[in-house]
Amino acid sequence: MIAEARKAFFVMFGFVAFVWLVQLANYAGDYALSRDYGVVSGDSGTLPHLLTAPFLHWNWAHLESNSGPLFVFGFLAAYRGVVRFLGLSLVVAVCSGLAIWFFERGGADTVGASGLVFGYFGYVVVRGLFDRHLIDTLIGVVMAASFAYLLTVAVPGTPGVSWLGHLGGLTGGVAGAWLFRDRHRKPAGSARSSADAADTVTGAAPAVGSAKPTNRDALPATPTDNPRAALHKELRDMGLL
């Protein structure tokens, strides 16, 4: 996990740096990139721009307001696996862009990374519940409590912002948490339980000269028998134990 966290840091640092470089080029061209590669509701020619609009902004203040949350939530979304994070980013960008394309009114040209911000936020909040990771669940609770105010700009009637893009991104983040959930996670002690069940089915007998231990003289429990073993491992990986 430490190695993945290190990769996540550099991925998000590079991502934010790239968005700022795009903004420099956009500013130098009088924001022609935003006009040419944004998402316009109902315009089929702008559907490919679902993947370009998150990198573009209308002004420096727009970019500055997105950069901090983009880095923080992006890092928290990526530290469990960069490959999974890239798939999540695609899902969020498409969901956010389609919400704008289908439901936005007035033919506005919409750009900005805020859809990704809301998508990563939604993913971080619910990921621990789908993956059954205690640490991720605690992180989700803290993020939800600390940044609940973000939801005020993902509801109808919010002036000056594309609340549809925010709501679509949030929906995409929750959907991504379910799509990319950890399907291979097993409860602690499941391997031993499976082995015991196999012995029962096959009727395997103890070796000659050995006796099956009773509850009184059973061998000490292995670390995997401890229901808190998974939590202890995660804390050790994070350097907290």
Score class of each variant (00 low, 15 high):
29 G>S: 13
58 W>N: 09
35 R>Q: 15
72 V>E: 05
29 G>H: 07
38 G>Q: 01
31 Y>K: 04
33 L>N: 06
61 A>T: 14
42 G>P: 06
45 G>V: 00
54 P>L: 08
68 G>M: 14
53 A>F: 01
56 L>C: 10
51 L>M: 14
59 N>A: 10
29 G>Y: 03
63 L>Y: 09
77 A>H: 11
45 G>K: 11
78 A>F: 12
33 L>T: 03
35 R>W: 09
46 T>R: 02
64 E>K: 13
67 S>K: 15
70 L>C: 01
52 T>I: 03
37 Y>T: 00
63 L>I: 05
61 A>V: 14
30 D>K: 05
72 V>W: 14
28 A>T: 08
32 A>Q: 03
33 L>P: 00
74 G>L: 06
55 F>T: 01
41 S>L: 06
46 T>L: 07
44 S>M: 12
46 T>V: 03
72 V>L: 14
31 Y>E: 05
43 D>S: 08
65 S>W: 15
44 S>P: 06
49 H>E: 04
39 V>A: 00
34 S>C: 11
65 S>H: 15
47 L>R: 13
55 F>A: 03
55 F>L: 10
31 Y>I: 08
64 E>Y: 13
43 D>Y: 02
32 A>D: 05
31 Y>H: 13
43 D>V: 07
63 L>Q: 06
53 A>V: 01
76 L>V: 07
61 A>H: 13
53 A>K: 02
66 N>A: 07
36 D>G: 08
27 Y>L: 13
64 E>G: 04
39 V>P: 00
47 L>F: 15
57 H>S: 14
24 L>M: 13
68 G>A: 15
73 F>N: 03
77 A>W: 12
74 G>N: 06
38 G>S: 15
35 R>N: 14
50 L>G: 10
67 S>L: 15
59 N>V: 06
71 F>R: 10
39 V>I: 13
71 F>K: 10
44 S>G: 11
72 V>T: 10
38 G>W: 00
55 F>E: 00
65 S>L: 15
66 N>S: 12
77 A>I: 12
69 P>L: 14
69 P>W: 09
26 N>H: 04
37 Y>C: 03
59 N>K: 10
50 L>Q: 04
67 S>I: 11
74 G>Y: 02
72 V>K: 09
24 L>E: 01
52 T>D: 00
72 V>D: 02
40 V>H: 02
27 Y>C: 05
26 N>L: 06
76 L>R: 12
28 A>Y: 13
71 F>Q: 11
74 G>H: 08
53 A>R: 02
66 N>K: 04
52 T>V: 04
59 N>Q: 04
59 N>R: 08
45 G>M: 09
64 E>W: 10
26 N>K: 06
46 T>G: 10
55 F>W: 09
38 G>P: 01
62 H>P: 05
31 Y>T: 02
75 F>T: 09
42 G>C: 11
24 L>T: 02
68 G>K: 15
40 V>S: 04
31 Y>V: 05
26 N>Y: 01
39 V>C: 01
28 A>G: 06
61 A>G: 15
44 S>W: 15
26 N>G: 05
65 S>Q: 13
47 L>H: 08
57 H>W: 13
67 S>D: 11
41 S>H: 11
36 D>E: 10
58 W>R: 11
24 L>F: 09
39 V>Y: 00
64 E>N: 12
32 A>P: 00
25 A>Q: 06
72 V>N: 05
77 A>E: 07
53 A>C: 00
51 L>H: 07
48 P>A: 04
45 G>R: 13
47 L>D: 08
62 H>C: 03
36 D>L: 05
25 A>N: 07
33 L>Q: 05
